[in-house]
């Protein structure tokens, strides 16, 4: 089993090495001459307004919850996708039913106007 995921591990090592090597090289090569303007937050060339750590709009939380619920649904889709070919039409109908029930919930949210951004 180790062999199957060895490639993933090698990718992990390369990705980490690439990041660290890039940062270290930049640290060694650059010259350091900071001033107040350079150290201010970059905001598309404009003067930055306020801090970056602001309180987010509560409405974002609603979408985060929606995301988590459909994330759980994907957990069920994943083993289904593995055996779907062997089981044929029966599994397909089951999944349509499963997704249909959840689409009902999404339709409810849509109808109630929870998805609208005002």
């Amino acid at each position: 089993m180790v062999n199957e995921y060895l490639a993933v591990f090698i990718f992990l090592v390369i990705a980490l090495g690439f990041t660290v090597a890039g940062l270290v090289t930049a640290f060694l090569v650059r010259n350091s001459n900071p001033n107040a303007e350079k150290e201010s937050t970059y905001e598309c060339g404009e003067e930055p307004v306020g801090g970056a750590w602001i309180q987010f709009n509560m409405r974002y939380y609603l979408f985060a919850i929606l995301f988590v619920i459909f994330d759980v649904e994907i957990i069920f889709l994943y083993p289904w996708a593995v055996v779907f070919k062997d089981l044929g039409l029966f599994a397909f109908v089951e999944m349509v039913l499963f997704l249909g029930i959840l689409v009902l919930g999404l339709a409810y949210c849509w109808k109630k106007g929870h998805l609208r951004w005002e």
Partner: peptide
């Protein structure tokens, strides 16, 4: 299939 009903309840409850 019941799991999808539970998820539906969670969805509507959260909303």
């Amino acid at each position: 299939e019941v799991a999808s009903l539970v998820l539906l309840a969670a969805l509507i409850g959260a909303m």
